[in-house]
Every structure is written in structure tokens, then in C-alpha cells.
Amino acid sequence: MKMLAKRYKYFLALIVINMLVYILYPSVGQKSMNITWNNTVEMLSVIPPIFVLLGLLDVWVQRETMIKLMGEKSGIVGILIAFFLGSAAAGPLYAAFPIAGVLLHKGSKFSNVLIFIGAWSTTKIPMLLFEASAMGWKFMLTRFVIDIPGIMVIAYVTEKLLNEKEKQYIYDQAGNVVA
């Protein structure tokens, strides 16, 4: 029980803050509770398949296979798979990090994992279609065309600026979070 309270301390503190807001500014507090409830329902409906796939990926895909597909020497294939995995997904960005953890755990190259995160954040197919209908095709396509090299540059520069020790720490960390 105490452990549970400790793990959820930020969540509990935020609930208290939300209640204080509700007491001081009822309309804002009410609204934020509504939004929180809707988002919780949305999260619970979007997330189950993501985690089921994550579990299956972890159990069925051999580390060697993943290294071949997305590891250090995977080259263009790894980049394409990273883009595809990220773009084909549905769900908020914060749901992508646990998958990123499994990809790292299985030996994916860090820059490929960052490309996956970049694709998940900006080139998700359902989102692109929605963007085109709201903002116009020209807006969406221009952004899409510049985002692809942008995502890759961000991924490579981030990886280049980390030293071996820092990268090793990330891979160790991924092992802890997944296992």
C-alpha cells in the first residue's frame, strides 16, 4: 500500500491540485476533470493493442533478427522499418516510448529508435489524412516532405552527440524497464 502510494505520488499530488483548482475555480476544475476523464477513457481504449503487440514482439522476435533488421548495420532497411513502424501506428506519443524501450532492448540502433519516435510523432498516416482535410493537401505535403529529412537529422545528431557510456546506459535502462 505504502509502495503503491509512493509510485503514484505525482499522480496523487496532481489529483489534489486538480481538486484545489476545482474549489477555487469551479468551472476550470470541472472542465479539467472532464478532459482528464475523456483522455483516460481514450488512453484505455487505444493502448491495449499497443501493449499486446509490444509483448508479442518481445517474446517472438529474436534479438538477432532485430539486430539484423534495425541494428547498427541495418542501414537503409532499418531506417525504412523505423519509419514504417512509427507511421503505421495509432496512439499518443507517450505510448511510443515503451515500444521504443523494447526496440532498444532487442538491439535496435539508437538513431533508428529515434526515427521511429519521430515518425510516430509527425508522420502517422491517420494524422496526415486528418491534417490534409483540415489544413489542405499543400500544407500537409510540404510539412511531410520536410519532416522526413528533419526526423533523420534529429535522430543522427542526437545519437552522434552521445558518447559510448551514455548510449550503454540507455541500453541498460531499456533492459530494466522491459524485463
Binding site: 509510485r7 503514484y8 505525482y10 499522480f11 496532481l14 489529483i15 491540485i17 486538480n18 483548482v21 476550470v28 476544475g29 472542465k31 479539467s32 476533470m33 472532464n34 478532459i35 482528464t36 483522455n39 483516460t40 488512453m43 493502448i47 501493449f51 499486446v52 509490444l54 509483448g55 508479442l56 518481445d58 517474446v59 517472438w60 507517450y94 516510448f97 515503451p98 524501450g101 523494447v102 524497464v177 522491459v178
Partner: peptide, 28 residues
């Protein structure tokens, strides 16, 4: 696999919930 799925979910559930409440307050 299901055990792992649940464990990874439970592992980050505190952060997920905190993020969702922050989003709620912020959007309000």
C-alpha cells in the same frame, strides 16, 4: 507475452496517469 505486456503497462501507468491529469489541467 501477455505477462510482459501487462508488466510494461503497469510499469509506466503512474507516469501515464500523471501526464493525463497535467494535460487535463493545462487544456482547461
Amino acid at each position: 507475452a501477455m505477462k510482459k505486456a501487462w508488466k510494461s503497462f503497469e510499469n509506466i501507468l503512474p507516469q501515464f496517469l500523471a501526464i493525463i491529469v497535467i494535460i487535463g489541467i493545462m487544456l482547461a
